[in-house]
Design a protein around this nucleic acid. Structure first.
Length: 269
DNA sequence: CTAAAATCCTGGTGGC
DNA sequence: TGCCACCAGGATTTTA
C-alpha cells in the first residue's frame, strides 16, 4: 500500500518520462475511478493537455498540465506507470491516457480503491492535509506545537493525514519503533525528548525508505512507475512473533483504530 | 473532542 | 483440489 516513500518514487519515475508529452485520448474502464469530474468533462478537460511536471503531496501523485492538474491517489493497490506503445492492456487497468508518441499512462488498480481527480488547483484536494514531514520548513517546534494539542494515541495520530501528510500503516509502525515510543501512548504526554526522537524518527525512516525506493512486502504488490520493487526492509511491520532486531523480545501485534499495529513491548515502553 | 465501527473492494490465505 | 469465510488497508462517513 503506497505511502509517502512509494508515492515519491512513483512521482519521480513519472517525472523522468512524462513531461513534454501530450494527452491524445482517454479510456476509463471503471468509472468510479474518477473522483471528479464525471467522464465527459474529464475527457474534454484532458485531451490536448501537455504534461509539464510530476510531483507529490502527501500520498497524492500530482501531474501538472499546461492547464490544470491531474491528481492520483493509489490507495491500496493502485499503480501508475507508462506503458510502451502497443503493450496489451492488463485486466485491472482502470484508466488509460493515450500519449502523442504512442505510449500510454496507465492506472492499474486491482482493488478499485484508487481515485483520480482533474482540478484547476491541487489545493482543492490537498488543502486538508497536514504538513509535509520532509519539508525544509517543517521544524521540531512546529511538530511540538502540533503534538501538544492532540490527546489521541500516537499510532492514530501518525495515520491522520490532517495531522501529518503521507504516513501510512507500515511507516507509522516503523517510525514508532525507531523512536522507541509505544503506539498506544497519548500524544500530549510526550516529553521534549520524546518529541525530538519522534521528529527525528519520522525523518530517518521516510528518508531511508525513499532512498530505497519504498517497501515491497513479500505478499504485497507495490511496484514503482518502472515496475521495480522497493528495497526498504521493515523492522517491525508484519513481524509479530518474530524477535525484535534490537533486543530479541517477540514483536507483538494489536489493533488500534482498526489498524494492525506491530511493536516491541520492551523497546517501546 | 476522541474513538470505534461501517463502508468500499478483491486477492490472498487458512480451514475443512 | 475445491469451496468458502475472512482479512487487510486509506480515507470517509456514521455512530457512540
Amino acid at each position: 500500500m503506497p505511502e509517502l516513500p512509494e508515492v515519491e518514487t512513483v512521482a519521480r519515475g513519472l517525472h523522468e518520462r512524462l513531461p513534454g508529452s501530450t494527452i491524445t485520448g482517454v479510456s476509463v474502464y471503471w468509472p468510479r475511478t474518477l473522483a471528479r469530474p464525471a467522464l465527459d468533462e474529464f475527457t474534454a478537460g484532458l485531451v490536448g493537455r501537455r504534461v509539464e511536471s510530476v510531483g507529490r503531496r502527501g500520498k497524492y501523485v500530482i501531474i501538472k498540465l499546461d492547464h490544470g492538474y491531474l491528481l492520483v491517489h493509489l490507495k491500496m493497490s493502485g499503480r501508475l506507470f507508462v506503458a510502451p506503445a502497443g503493450e496489451a492492456p492488463g485486466p485491472h487497468d482502470r484508466a488509460v491516457l493515450d500519449l502523442d508518441d504512442g505510449r500510454q499512462l496507465r492506472f492499474r488498480d486491482a482493488r478499485k480503491f484508487g481515485r483520480i481527480y482533474l482540478v484547476d488547483q491541487p489545493e482543492e484536494i490537498t488543502a486538508p492535509l497536514g504538513p509535509e514531514p520532509l519539508a525544509a520548513d517543517f521544524s521540531l517546534d512546529d511538530f511540538g506545537r502540533l503534538l501538544g494539542r492532540r490527546s489521541g494515541r500516537l499510532k492514530s495520530m501518525l495515520l491522520n493525514q490532517e495531522f501529518l501528510a503521507g504516513v501510512g500503516n507500515i511507516y507509522a509502525d516503523e517510525i514508532l519503533y525507531v523512536a522507541r515510543l509505544n503506539p498506544l501512548r497519548r500524544a500530549d504526554t510526550l516529553t521534549a525528548c520524546d518529541r525530538a526522537r519522534l521528529y527525528e524518527a519520522i525523518h530517518t525512516v521516510l528518508q531511508r525508505a525513499i532512498a530505497a525506493c519504498g517497501t515491497t512486502l513479500p505478499d504485497r504488490n507495490y511496484l514503482d512507475a518502472e515496475g521495480r520493487a522497493g528495497e526498504y526492509r521493515v523492522e517491525v511491520y508484519g513481524r509479530d512473533g518474530e524477535p525484535c532486531l534490537a533486543c530479541g523480545t517477540p514483536i507483538e501485534r494489536l489493533v488500534i483504530g482498526g489498524r494492525s499495529t506491530h511493536f516491541c513491548p520492551k523497546c517501546q515502553q
